[in-house]
Design a protein around this nucleic acid. Structure first.
Length: 232
DNA sequence: CCAGACGTTGTT
DNA sequence: GTCTGG
DNA sequence: CCAGACGTTGTT
DNA sequence: GTCTGG
């Protein structure tokens, strides 16, 4: 499961890097997680940021509680599932980020959080799918899910899965309205070429409500209970 | 979708 | 709702 | 054709 | 080969 990242780039960095308009209400998230209202860029409207909730609610779950949210879609699954392929054809987005978090298991129940971020400090583009649906009260909701893939050599020791990171070229295809199904399926196999650095961070990222700027900074390796550990 | 069947007729 | 295994 | 499953993972 | 029960 991939459930934390940060988007703490300045408005100007987003404008420069993605050529998008950034509204005044844009707010930095040092600890973006499921259910947060986060900035994404849809292929329908790549000129601006859209603010959607992280975590899709499948329409066939009528009355189930919200914990059933789907925050990830496996890249490998999309090619096999007609529903997802259709969704890929119609509802692509990228999620701007400047780093992401992964938990490394160190025991049955404890894990230590790591942060991965690009060496060149430029924003990352995470591939995603979005959806719009009406609930029973006829309220329209906009949500998105992040596409995950098998971790590469660097992240593997920490976590099995990582977000699908797009580079300049693959991002262009992903946001192209006229991209073909084959082209897009190809993007799902994008190997990460972006050089990343990593260090351990505060386990406070486990709290969805935590959002202080220091969360992105290095912190002594500690598990979610706050126990310091020598094994990182 | 695919394994497995694939014909007819009727006491009263 | 749509997809699919039997 | 239809019953039953259906994008993800695992306590942070 | 085509039809169909599961």
């Amino acid at each position: 499961m991939f459930d934390r990242y940060s988007i703490a780039a300045s408005a100007q960095q987003l404008i420069d890097h993605f050529s998008v308009d950034v509204p005044a209400h844009y707010k930095k998230y040092y600890n973006a997680g499921p259910t947060h209202l986060l900035p994404i860029i849809t292929h329908h409207h790549p000129e601006g940021l859209s603010f959607f909730y992280w975590g899709a609610i499948p329409q066939w779950i009528k009355n189930k509680n919200i914990s059933e949210k789907l925050i990830n879609v496996r890249a490998e699954t999309i090619k096999d599932k007609p529903v997802l392929k259709k969704k890929m054809m119609r509802f692509r987005c990228i999620i701007p980020s400047d780093g992401f978090y992964c938990w490394k298991k160190v025991g049955k129940k404890s894990a230590i959080p790591y942060r991965f971020f690009p060496k060149n400090k430029l924003p990352l583009s995470i591939a995603g799918l979005w959806e719009e649906f009406e609930d029973e009260q006829e309220e329209t909701h906009h949500t998105f899910s992040i596409i995950t893939t098998q971790s590469n050599k660097q992240i593997q020791p920490v976590n099995e899965r990582m977000p699908l990171l797009l580079n300049k070229e693959t991002q262009k295809v992903w946001l192209n309205k006229d991209a073909s199904e084959n082209e897009l399926l190809g993007m799902l196999k994008t190997e990460n070429t972006i050089m990343l650095d990593s260090y351990t961070v505060s386990p406070r990222i486990g709290l969805l409500s935590a959002n202080e700027s220091t969360l992105v900074l290095p912190s002594a390796p500690a598990d979610q209970f706050g126990n310091l550990t020598l094994f990182d």
